[in-house]
Simulated assay, not measured.
Amino acid sequence: MNIKQIAMRATIVASVLGLSACANMSAQDRNTAIGAGVGAVAGSALSGGSALGTVGGAAVGGVIGNQVSKPTR
């Protein structure tokens, strides 16, 4: 197993453990966290394990997750 595979698995485990703390969050907060986790995994996969790709994916995913459940006025 190389370092990229280890980093990918660590990211997935951290995302799953982080999402377990979502019980008392609002729907928008929960969707932001889920979007960031999914975005981090996708960014890492698409960039070949690049740290910049992982962080960028997390940022984009978090924004999308936040806006999906944004309350309407």
Rank of each mutant, 00 (worst) to 15 (best):
M1Q: 12
M1W: 12
N2I: 12
I3M: 06
K4Q: 10
K4V: 11
K4H: 08
Q5C: 09
I6N: 04
I6D: 03
A7H: 02
A7R: 08
A7S: 08
A7N: 05
M8T: 11
M8R: 13
R9S: 15
R9G: 14
R9V: 13
A10F: 12
A10P: 14
A10R: 11
A10W: 11
T11C: 10
T11K: 11
I12M: 05
V13R: 09
V13T: 11
A14V: 14
A14F: 05
S15N: 14
V16G: 05
V16F: 07
L17A: 10
L17N: 08
G18I: 08
G18T: 07
G18Y: 05
G18A: 04
L19Q: 03
L19D: 02
S20L: 14
S20V: 15
S20W: 13
A21H: 11
A21F: 15
A21G: 09
C22D: 10
C22G: 11
A23L: 08
A23W: 12
A23P: 14
N24Y: 09
N24H: 13
N24E: 10
M25Q: 08
S26Q: 02
A27M: 13
A27Q: 08
A27G: 05
Q28E: 10
Q28S: 08
Q28W: 10
Q28M: 11
Q28P: 03
Q28D: 05
Q28K: 07
D29V: 11
D29A: 15
D29R: 11
R30A: 07
R30M: 09
R30L: 07
N31K: 15
N31F: 15
T32C: 04
A33M: 12
A33R: 10
I34G: 02
I34S: 00
I34W: 00
I34R: 00
I34V: 13
I34Y: 00
G35R: 08
G35C: 02
A36T: 02
A36R: 09
G37D: 05
V38P: 06
V38A: 14
G39N: 06
G39I: 01
A40I: 02
A40Y: 05
A40Q: 03
V41N: 00
V41Y: 00
A42L: 13
G43E: 00
G43S: 00
G43L: 01
S44E: 12
S44M: 12
S44D: 06
A45E: 02
L46M: 07
L46F: 09
S47I: 01
S47W: 01
S47M: 03
S47V: 01
S47K: 04
G48A: 06
G48L: 05
G48N: 01
G49R: 01
G49W: 09
A51D: 06
L52R: 14
L52Q: 15
L52M: 15
G53Q: 06
V55F: 15
V55I: 13
G56Q: 00
G57I: 00
A58C: 02
A58T: 01
A59T: 15
A59F: 11
V60L: 08
V60N: 06
G61D: 00
G62K: 03
I64D: 03
I64G: 01
N66L: 07
Q67M: 13
Q67S: 14
V68W: 05
V68D: 01
V68G: 03
S69R: 07
S69M: 06
S69Y: 06
K70D: 06
K70Q: 08
K70A: 09
P71G: 01
P71M: 01
T72C: 03
T72V: 12
T72H: 07
R73I: 15
